[in-house]
Each structure stands twice: as C-alpha cells, then as structure tokens.
Design a protein around this nucleic acid. Structure first.
Lengths: 182, 182
DNA sequence: AGGCTCATGTAACCGGTTACATGATTAT
DNA sequence: ATAATCATGTAACCGGTTACATGAGCCT
C-alpha cells in the first residue's frame, strides 16, 4: 500500500520514469522503505489503471526509450488524503527477524550470541559511516527545490541517524553484559 | 518466514496450544513481531505438515477442547539452523509508513505536520508507560525458567525501551524546529 | 443481560519478493 | 573485453492481513 503513496509523492514533485523512481527510492527512502524495481513497475501499472498517474512514452535515440509518468488531479487528491489522514500508523512496532533471534538466543552459547551482536554492531557502524554523506546530498538536492521541503528530508535522515546510533549503543551494552558471564 | 521460527522457538521452551502461542506473541514478541491469530493457526498447520511439530488433541470438560503442539527433533534442528546461521538480517532498515509521511510532509503546513508529530510523540509516551511493566513480568516469568534465557528477553526489552525513547527525543527535536518556522 | 476469556479455524485478498529476461550505450 | 548505466518488464510464489464464523463457560 505505502509503496504506491511513495510513488505518488515523488511524482508530485515532478514527472519521472520508472527508472528515476527506482533511483529516488534508493537514495532517499531506502532506509525505511526498500523497494524492488520489479515492484515499482508493477505498481506504476496499477496506478495508471486507477487513473492516479498517466504515462507518456519518450523516444530517445541514444538511449532506450522511456515512459515518463505524471500525477493526475485524482492521484494528487488520493495522495493528499493519505498524507493528512491521522490514521495511527502503528509506527512503534516493526517486524525484525534479528530481534526475534536475539529473543531466542538463550539456545546459543554466550560466545555465539556475542558474535552475532558484534556482527550487528559493525554492520551498523559501517552503515552509519555511509550515512554521513546524506546531509550533503540533501543540501544539493534542496538548493533548487522549495527550501521548506528539505527540513522533512532532514527529519527522516535524523531519524535514521539516531536509530542507528541507538542500535550501536544497545549492542555495546549487550556485548558487555555477555562478556561478564562467559 | 520468521513467524514459523517464532512458533518453533516457543514450542522449544514447552508444548503449547495455538491459543497459548497467540498470548505468548502478544506478551513478548509483540513489539517487533506482531502476529495475527489467524496466521498462527495457519502456520501451525503448515509446520505440522512439514513434520516440524506434532499436535495432540486434549479433551476438556469445562472448556473447549484444544490441541497441544510439541516440537519434533527435525523441527528443533530447523530452528537451531535458523538461529545460528549468520545471514545478515538486514536489521537496519525497516518499513515505516509513518516515516514516509514525514518525508513527504512538505506538502502540509508546519501546523499540520507538527500536529502529526505531537500525536506520534504522545503515542510513544503512552507506549513507554505501558512498557514499564515488562521488566517485572520478565522476572516473574524468568524465576521458574533457566536464568540464562532471561537476559535475552531483557535485551529485547531494552531495545524496545531505547527505541521508543529515541523516537520521543527525535519527535521533540522536530516539533521544536517546526515551531520556530511557523 | 452483557462482556470477557478460552478456543479454533476458513476464505479471499494483497503487498511484496525472487528469479528471470532483454538490450542498447558509455566509460575503463 | 568487460563492467556500469540506462531502461523496462513478466511469472511464480509466499508471507501476512482482513474479515468472517462459531461456541462454551465465567464473572459482574
């Protein structure tokens, strides 16, 4: 469901091809909404059928042809309804196979589970490093956009940043605890 | 996929009915793996067909009859393989319609988005309050269980706690920022 | 009388993933 | 040569959700 609103949201900024959308998801929503390219193309088809977007083929000589999609008025209305509705999004709990593993780690030795947590921690740390580039890219992106938009991109980036840092601190505490009982 | 491992994990502690499992998920995995009762019953059927668990009907006079499921040796092996495999769980990113809304909130007024974030924050705060009871229930639960198990339950509880606190702090920062530009 | 707990399921649907398929141009 | 970027899709599958259906016993 939310993928379609993500697509509508991007097309509300400007018309884009499926390929553009794949890139847009990768570079901005990636952290909290990973999207497969196959899924995006399927969703574009559905949105077109519903009349929320309309596609136009652009013939290119030096590159493969592409279809550029624009949001329609009904599409924009649909998007705004979703955005404004106060539906409690259940934002607090999320599905995490990793945490489920931690929950059941009493079936492993402390050494095994500490290793798992160390791997998690280093994964987080390298992810955090890659995230350092985000604030800059928002500034670039934002310069030619409405300045007001960019604060929300910064909000989500800040969330990602804080989340990962919380993960690293938590993993550190867990590992410490496990080292005392070995 | 992970639901089945959650079920196997609980049945690895002790035999349970579908109803027991629903309660177990609600009281412990709820935060990071919400499970529908219908889904649990469907999964139990599949796991039985695969031979990972086996069910036995218990006739009760004062209550409806029930089926108690036990984990089999192959089921236990399957569970342990899942637990130990170092598959990178992709624990860092998760799907959040709420954060997607934040990302696109440049289409709302600062007042509207601040309201949304305030609602989120109070939701988090009431959730945090309810979470205060968890450490106690782990202690109770843990007293008759292997003490070593309980540290992992505490780890996941700690994660939930830290996560919610991070959310509250983040929302606070966002609201503050929005209030300055109104 | 009304609501809660105990107890188990089915059917339809849908959001999303995995794997596969193709092919031109451009840069190294 | 070969890898990367640009570009678009299909088919099969599956994990999970929503809605529905039933019914006994207990507590207030």
């Amino acid at each position: 469901m939310s993928l379609s609103f993500g697509i509508l949201g991007f097309l509300n900024y400007r018309p884009m091809s499926g390929y553009d959308l794949v890139k847009a998801f990768e570079s901005s929503l990636e952290f909290f909404w990973h999207a497969q390219n196959s899924h995006i193309y399927l969703e574009l088809k559905k949105l077109e059928q519903k009349g929320y977007i309309c596609g136009e083929t652009v013939i290119q000589s030096e590159r493969p042809n592409k279809r550029i999609f624009s949001i329609t008025d009904t599409g924009r209305k649909e998007f705004m309804d979703w955005l404004v509705e106060g539906g409690s999004e259940d934002a607090m709990h999320f599905k995490s196979p990793f945490l489920m593993k931690v929950f059941f780690s009493g079936n492993m030795t402390p050494t095994q589970s500490a290793d798992m947590l160390r791997k998690f921690k280093t994964d987080c740390e390298s992810y955090l490093k890659r995230m350092d580039s985000i604030p800059k890219s928002i500034e670039n992106y934002g310069s030619d956009m409405d300045n007001y938009q960019t604060i929300y991109w910064q909000f989500t980036a800040d969330f990602g940043y804080s989340f990962i840092k919380t993960c690293i601190e938590w993993a550190g505490r867990c590992i410490e605890k496990l080292e005392t009982i070995q």
